[in-house]
């Protein structure tokens, strides 16, 4: 424990510390400006609003940067990601200052706040998901590409059918099990409940069921039974990959869609606020 405390921090820990320090300085600066405005009895909402809007534009620009990966002057995507995370976290504080730490009362403002919370919330979830899901996927035996998962599922289903048709023609035990329980598993897609909360329960039950039949099988047919159990595990890994990789992709779609909606409404809100307040004094 002591060694860990006094050992030199690694590259990622150093990066986190520097980014947090920079964010702290930036927030302190913004808070000081807001404080100064309020002491002078000037509305600070314009300052925080402009900071928020600019931050939002910067955060949305990350998607544009991804399209321009070949321009060296824009920096690496990893650098943008770090800036995106810490700027995004910083906007929570600025948003709080902007709305005065209370629920907005106007209709448009409420929609705007809800959208902001959607974007921020999906961002926080994304941060959590991108830090935890890859580690879960690494533990599996396969590493399929998302787009190839349907093809691999079909391949496994065909393999299972081939085992039943070729290896155990004379054995009705495995055949019956296959048509009763395994075939629906191999040939159907998983339910929405599985996609939302994937679990290996069904696969475990099926493997157990296959093993329970071993006592009724000839020694030669036990090989086929082992292969079927292996295919069940492979299919389950594949489904887990599909569900988790799908989750990693779908949260981003939600996050980006909410971001663009937020950007449009925030721009409208800014224009209206300035139009009716006569601009910055």
């Amino acid at each position: 424990m002591m060694n860990r405390l006094i050992s030199k921090p690694n590259r990622l820990t150093r990066r986190r510390a520097i980014n947090a320090l920079l964010l702290g300085i930036a927030l302190f600066g913004i808070a000081a400006v807001v404080n100064r405005f309020e002491r002078a009895l000037m509305p600070s909402a314009f300052v925080t609003g402009i900071v928020l809007w600019l931050s939002l534009c910067f955060l949305a620009a990350f998607n544009l940067r991804k399209k321009l990966s070949f321009l060296p002057c824009l920096g690496t995507s990893a650098f943008w990601m770090q800036a995106h995370i810490y700027t995004g976290l910083g906007t929570f504080a600025v948003f709080g200052l902007h709305v005065g730490w209370r629920v907005p009362d106007g209709g448009l403002e409420r929609v705007l706040a809800a959208l902001y919370l959607c974007v921020g919330g999906s961002g926080i979830y994304g941060l959590y998901a991108t830090r935890t899901i890859p580690k879960k996927l690494t533990q599996l035996r396969t590493e399929p590409i998302f787009e190839s998962i349907p093809r691999l599922r079909t391949h496994i289903a065909k393999e299972a059918l081939a085992i039943i048709e070729s290896q155990v023609e004379h054995n009705q035990v495995l055949r019956a099990l296959y048509y009763r329980q395994l075939r629906p598993f191999f040939e159907n897609r998983r339910t929405l409940a599985y996609v939302i909360a994937p679990s290996a329960r069904q696969a475990r039950l099926l493997v157990n069921e296959i093993h329970k039949q071993d006592r009724y099988l000839a020694v030669a047919d036990r090989d086929a039974s082992k292969k079927l159990a292996q295919l069940v595990r492979e299919r389950d890994d594949l489904d887990y990959h599909g569900a988790m990789q799908g989750r990693l992709k779908s949260w981003l779609i939600l996050h980006v869609a909410c971001t663009y909606s937020l950007l449009i409404i925030a721009t409208l809100h800014g224009v209206m606020a300035h139009a009716f307040a006569g601009g910055l004094r």
């Binding site: 899901i133 890859p134 580690k135 996927l137 690494t138 590409i145 998302f146 990693l248």
Partner: peptide, 8 residues
Amino acid sequence: RDRCTRCD
């Protein structure tokens, strides 16, 4: 693979 989100 512990860091890769398979985003492609």
